[in-house]
């Protein structure tokens, strides 16, 4: 589904990613862990197409296509979804309107009929159950005045609505209390399927108590320095990232 090869990325002339290699197959959940400043968020944003990030070398192939040749919206319409670490406020645009536009653009690109206002409303209400969101969120401006937990739930709601093939979650666990973390994690678990893949980017292991990954990768200094199974996350939690650099590791 996604094949990243020798990816180098710079921001404002500073190289952040220094040769990333990663293969994600349908249905897999990959956790990418690493200390602050290791390049985790850069990786998620460059995959989604953030204009501040420049690919200087390497490639990313998504379903056989060159991801970096695709416009931001085309990536989304083709099924790539990024749940933001810091979701953006969109004043004056209500959530329902925003979700309707996003869903219909995506449906159009997939050759599906656009849904009308009534159909959308029913559909959204159904999806809001996944993240236990109240219907009143639909009439509020996107993310404006939302608490940290509400913003993250809103991201997962969008994930549920847009039904992507590849969902990239950037530190979705950060800033969540334990109840919100459970709700968000359960939402993700319900959305797992044999055809949908996840990349979970996280600093801490705690979300992985709720979402069991197939693969865990450690990103440090712009490179994946270590990969393993789900147990690797526990080891990291126990021994810290310093351990990865030491000689004590496997």
């Amino acid at each position: 589904m996604l094949q990243i090869t020798d990816l180098h990325v710079s921001v404002e002339g500073v190289e952040i990613l220094k040769g990333i290699n990663l293969s994600v197959h349908p249905g897999e959940v990959h956790a990418i862990m690493g200390p602050n400043g290791s390049g985790k968020s850069t990786l998620t944003r460059v995959l989604a197409g953030h204009p501040s990030y420049v690919v200087t070398r390497g490639s990313a192939t998504y379903e056989g296509k060159d991801l970096f040749q695709m416009a931001i919206e085309d990536r989304a319409r083709a099924g790539v979804f990024l749940a933001f670490q810091y979701p953006i406020d969109i004043p004056g645009v209500n959530n329902a309107y925003f979700l309707k536009a996003a869903l219909n653009e995506t449906r159009k690109a997939q050759g599906l009929e656009e849904l009308d206002a009534m159909e959308i409303l029913e559909f959204l209400k159904e999806k809001m159950k996944v993240v236990e969101m109240d219907a009143s969120f639909l009439s509020r401006p996107v993310n404006e005045g939302f608490s940290g937990g509400e913003k993250k739930r809103n991201e997962i709601l969008q994930l549920a609505v847009l039904n992507p093939k590849l969902a990239i979650l950037d530190e979705t666990d950060s800033g969540l209390d334990i109840d919100a973390l459970k709700i968000v994690s359960e939402g993700v678990n319900r959305l797992r399927s044999s055809s949908r893949s996840f990349i979970l980017v996280t600093h801490y292991q705690r979300m992985l108590n709720y979402i069991t990954p197939d693969h865990v990768h450690v990103l440090m200094g712009g490179k994946i320095v270590l990969s393993g199974g789900k147990d690797l996350a526990f080891k990291l939690e126990e021994k810290g990232y310093e351990w990865v650099k030491s000689d004590d590791r496997p």
């Binding site: 989604a48 979804f81 990024l82 847009l162």
Partner: peptide, 12 residues
């Protein structure tokens, strides 16, 4: 904000 909306499939 533009990036956020576009990342949801909404055209530029």
């Amino acid at each position: 904000a533009l990036f956020y909306l576009r990342s949801r499939g909404i055209g530029e």
